[in-house]
């Protein structure tokens, strides 16, 4: 089964260890390689990109490495692709140019 890794027990996102397709069953492992949960990917996303482990309403803190990495800029559901289209930084807002970037899984913008 395809795997994603949750870096810290406080995290509400996991990082894909391989590219995922929409509908994929994903095994989420801890840094100790224990299986924590299974999620169904709702979107395609590449290796190194993130998938939601819980529902995150707009404004909710997104946590990775046990720390806040930003806030949900729109409602996020379990299994959703989590990236710049639905998370914003509290530290450094992205420029329009950066926000308009095409990235794997979001070729259509």
């Amino acid at each position: 089964m395809k795997k994603a890794i949750r870096m810290d027990e406080k995290d509400n996102v996991a990082t894909a260890l391989v590219g995922l397709a929409a509908g994929d069953e994903v095994e989420v492992i801890s840094s100790n390689r224990e299986i924590i949960q299974r999620v169904t990917a709702r979107d395609a996303l590449p290796l190194g990109h993130k998938i939601a482990l819980t529902n995150l309403p707009e404004g909710a803190v997104v946590t990775k490495y046990g720390a806040a990495i930003g806030k949900a800029s729109k409602d996020i559901s379990v299994g959703d692709y989590v990236h710049i289209h639905n998370v914003r930084s509290d530290r450094l807002p992205l420029t329009e140019h950066m926000l308009g970037l095409k990235y794997p899984g979001r070729e259509k913008g």
Binding site: P46, V62, G70, H83, S89, D90, R91, L92, M98
Partner: peptide, 11 residues
């Protein structure tokens, strides 16, 4: 960074 999956400077 963004194409590699990093969403924010914090991350």
């Amino acid at each position: 960074n963004i194409q590699g999956g990093l969403t924010t400077l914090e991350e």
